[in-house]
Write a protein that binds this DNA or RNA. Structure first.
Lengths: 143, 143
DNA sequence: TCTTAAATATGATTTTTATCATATTTTAAT
DNA sequence: ATTAAAATATGATAAAAATCATATTTAAGA
């Protein structure tokens, strides 16, 4: 469903949602340590996200990454799009170009509704809401 | 969600369901041509499936691949397991080892029900049923 | 303005997945 | 028995994804 990279990126962003603010930036080293992903690897991903304004950053002394209000009010979808491209979420399960409602592939009916539910949920839930769930103990982020 | 290889394998199996029988075996060359996958590649995949008795085959003159009744009454799940392994279908969307109902990751609630629906559907629908859908014009298999 | 600590840019390496090639074994027909 | 046509076994190559490394740029503090 998602690439490894996307998963890492999502973890990092959720970590930032919980542990950073404009006044309290955190650096790659700490992010990498906390989410258990090699530093050089997550650094590269964070750079892509920052370039697309999905997360915020400042460099130099006292610099680091954080989420501003706009970042927090976005969903996870842009992360997936930037890291994995658009095909990953939208292509038919058998990767048939021409699969659609009129000419559905054999798996289309089985999967379409569920898959759409997933996408709709992912789109509607903001990062801020996801991190609130963790803060209130409704969900967890080990490892 | 699925690897390329699994997708190819599923296509090949559906093709066999529609176009083969014990009396009418078809050879890799024809399968490859019909589903638009390189012959050497699909050959390897078919061999794995045959070894696991997911599809049937005989070699030599007049040999080829086909599905027997047992093959037809199975679901697509074993194909995915053999080609992609078990993790692919069952691991949490963030690949957190410890994600479960008691300690759900932030995406768990959003995704769990839909994902389960997908798995249940995949498990319950037989290859025979899927190919019947195509025969009755309820679904299609271009390319 | 110099130094230090951070992100950024760039690219090299490794691992995995996808693809291709070919020699061997088996089966049926002659 | 011999031959031809098929799958099978094995492994080589290519492409993509994941991982690692390092030089450059930027910002703040002394």
């Amino acid at each position: 469903m998602l690439s490894n990279s996307s998963k890492y990126a999502i973890k990092a962003v959720l970590f930032l949602a919980l542990n950073s603010s404009e006044e309290n930036k955190v650096m790659v080293k700490d992010i990498a340590g906390s989410i258990n992903v090699p530093q050089a690897y997550i650094a590269k991903l964070l750079q892509e996200l920052a370039k697309e304004n999905i997360i915020s950053s400042t460099r130099g002394y006292k610099g680091g990454f954080y989420l501003d209000e706009a970042n927090l009010n976005s969903s996870l979808i842009p992360i997936i799009y930037v890291i994995d491209g658009d095909k990953r979420l939208n292509s038919c399960m058998l990767s048939l170009e021409k699969c659609n409602e009129e000419k559905p592939c054999p798996l289309h009916k089985i999967l379409y509704r569920s898959r759409n539910n997933i996408l709709t949920s992912l789109k509607s839930k903001t990062i801020k809401e996801l991190s609130a769930d963790v803060e209130f103990g409704n969900s967890f982020l080990p490892l």
